[in-house]
Amino acid sequence: MQNIINLLTRAIFMSTPLILGALGEVIAERTGMMMCAVEGIFLTGAWAGFAGCYLSGNMAVGFLAALICGMLVAMLYGFCTIYLTQHQIVMGTAVAILMTGFCTFFYRVVFGIPTSPLKIETLPVLKIPGLCRIPVIGQVLFSQNIITYITWLIVPVVFYVIYKTAAGLTIRSCGENPEAVEVAGINVRRIRFLAVMVGGCFGGVAGAYYSLCNVGMYNSEIISGRGWIAFGICFLGNWNPVGALLFGILFGISEAVGIYIKAVGGSGIPSELFSALPYMLVIVLTALRKQFNVPAKLGATYVKED
């Protein structure tokens, strides 16, 4: 029983950055922008978060640095895809290659070649008084770190903004019928650019979660496809914040099971298969789903007639 509780706690812990990244992706994709730079943004966030925290000794500075750097990368991506009308998937690859080089290069610039890997304390657990004493749920849900709680709070906020406000209507319309939005006197490109910026902030913090909360150090393999999983979660969650939350938890569980099996060992099943589990899950789930509520203009560059 205790094992299962630990497993679930770990699952919730691992789901946070995926949910956060997927939420950013939802906001951007609702306006018709595929955030293919997400892997590069995650990596930048992980790097900036680590560097900010290590140099200042303050977690908050680390997360702030990650947020800003994630936003900057998203702005570069947004500028090239929206204003210079370049292809989104291709641009995403370019950003990923660039940021891989950039982060490794600047890790070297800032830290030189350390004799032993630089480590920091990971973000501590924040037990919510009272609630954390509830059996099972208390440990699983209310003994997490602060970023996890904030992420849960963001889910209804994003949901409310997208479905219940005028701004949300504009966001969704940009993805469904940009011409109509333009006729209504709203600048489609600006909306898309802003949405990508917000998505970048989310992605940056999500990336920093891996370096600051999960391992307490930085290396270039720290993300290894998690950005793309967040991208997939946005698809599977039907571009809905609640869907992102549910699928985020599902992938958190699959990651936690992999970690657990590797730690326990002796199951007879090779650990590599468990590492591959989340990725296989994306493939199977995308294939199984019949109906997707894809924003009509997702991935299509909006060219303003003049």
Binding site: I89, S224, G225, W228, F231, G232, F235, P270, E272, L273, S275, A276, Y279, M280, V282, I283, T286, A287, L288, K290
Partner: peptide, 29 residues
């Protein structure tokens, strides 16, 4: 998968790389 299930080929091909990488590691080990 793309033709029969209308799966997003971009996502599926991206994920297949990670799955294959792990399976290759398993075989190498």
């Amino acid at each position: 998968l793309k033709a029969k299930f209308n799966a997003n080929e971009f996502l599926v091909s991206m994920m297949s790389t990670y799955v294959i990488t792990y399976i290759m590691q398993l075989l190498l080990r």
